[in-house]
Simulated assay, not measured.
Amino acid sequence: MKELLRTNDPVRLSFLTSLLRDADIRVVQMDAHTSIVEGSIGAIQRRLMVADEDYAPARRLLLDAGEDMPDA
């Protein structure tokens, strides 16, 4: 699996997850439980992960949607 991005913004995570799923790209949110356990103070960001073969199309989709993506 490859990491698309990290964020603490739950609205952004929800939107991006929906966008990817609508494009039939399976996405997994990592560190959600850890983030909750630490009290949601923002110390641990959640990661959006996709399968290696879905990374390029997922990245392109998010860039086309206007997301500011970290360098690959």
Rank of each mutant, 00 (worst) to 15 (best):
M1V: 05
K2S: 05
E3S: 10
E3Y: 05
L5S: 04
L5P: 00
N8I: 02
P10C: 06
P10A: 09
P10T: 03
P10S: 08
V11H: 11
R12G: 10
R12K: 15
L13V: 11
L13F: 08
S14C: 15
S14R: 13
F15T: 12
F15H: 13
L16W: 08
L16F: 11
T17M: 13
S18H: 13
L19S: 00
L19R: 00
L19Q: 01
L20V: 06
R21P: 02
D22S: 03
A23W: 01
D24N: 04
D24V: 00
I25M: 02
V27Y: 02
V27T: 07
V27Q: 02
V28L: 13
Q29Y: 05
Q29F: 08
D31M: 08
D31Y: 12
A32Y: 08
A32S: 10
A32V: 10
S35C: 10
S35G: 06
I36N: 10
V37R: 14
V37I: 15
V37S: 08
V37W: 12
V37Q: 10
V37D: 09
V37E: 11
S40Q: 14
I41E: 10
G42K: 06
G42S: 04
G42A: 02
Q45T: 02
R46I: 05
R46T: 01
R46Q: 14
R47A: 06
R47W: 04
L48W: 03
E53C: 08
D54A: 09
D54H: 07
D54S: 07
Y55V: 01
A56S: 10
A56L: 10
A56I: 06
A58T: 01
R59G: 02
R59Y: 12
R60M: 07
R60K: 14
L61R: 03
L62M: 15
D64Q: 13
D64G: 03
D64S: 11
A65V: 03
A65S: 13
G66K: 05
E67G: 01
E67M: 12
E67P: 00
D68S: 13
M69N: 03
M69Q: 03
